[in-house]
Design a protein around this nucleic acid. Sequence first.
DNA 1: AGGGCGACCTGAGGGC
DNA 2: TGCCCTCAGGTCGCCC
Length: 270
Amino acid sequence: MPELPEVETIRLGLLPYLQNNIITQLKIYENRLRWPIEKELQQCVGKSIQQLSRRGKYLILKLNQGNILLHLGMSGRLHLLDENSPRKKHDHVDFILQDHKILRFHDPRRFGAILWTNKEDFLQSHPLLKNLGPEPLEVWTLENWLKQANKARPIKSILMDAKVVVGIGNIYANEALFKAKIHPERLGNTISRNKLVKLQICAQETLKEAIICGGTTLKDFQNVEGKPGYFQQHLWVYGRGHKPCLICKTFLKEIRLNNRSTVFCPRCQL
DNA sequence: AGGGCGACCTGAGGGC
DNA sequence: TGCCCTCAGGTCGCCC
């Protein structure tokens, strides 16, 4: 489901409800997520939520002692519900809150993850976080990007590589490449500096616009209130394979690149 | 050493 | 209706 804009939308939606709330109970109905939920997660019970932040596509609940790391995988959702809301299929975990609301984790494909860490420096030391690249809207420098992009590797693969920059998944990679007018299969080290500068800017603009729209809703995505995002109305290429380019009317091509569906305009993107 | 790709899951949709 | 195939917003970890 979620790329950076969707996770950020969820974070912003949850923030007012979670900040300073206390987790009074943890109910695990299904612990077989991407990794089995570990017993230590029970340590969150009785702790207050001091901060809700994000690193890449991970949500981080900073408690007065310890941290919960949450990843939504492809199909994960978080909902805030009233106490005693009936459980539905694929509702796997409930965090019961002091004000009798429930933060409920729902994930049909179970590619998501819920992890616990006590370490102060987990952003730097946790095996799942320590190798993540820069945040695209904060610390993604041009020098770093030019260095990373200078590889004999398709530019779309580079852009989607979380070690290069976090948060850009398949939708926004397709969109950013269209806006920058770069063919997704072009090797990074054959692209001019100017074009790479443009691509970085286009990627950032695309993410910012999507956050403003509340994310993209295709099938699964809903925000915390269960409402969809509206960025899909702004999509130029993603999901539009074989339809006319919105700029030049040429039929968009759809190929598979690294086993991900890739849509581009063969005339606009060179 | 770095990058490609299979694997992890369920469900939806299309073709027959 | 049902079976079988493919595909889906992520990403780890194996293998080359």
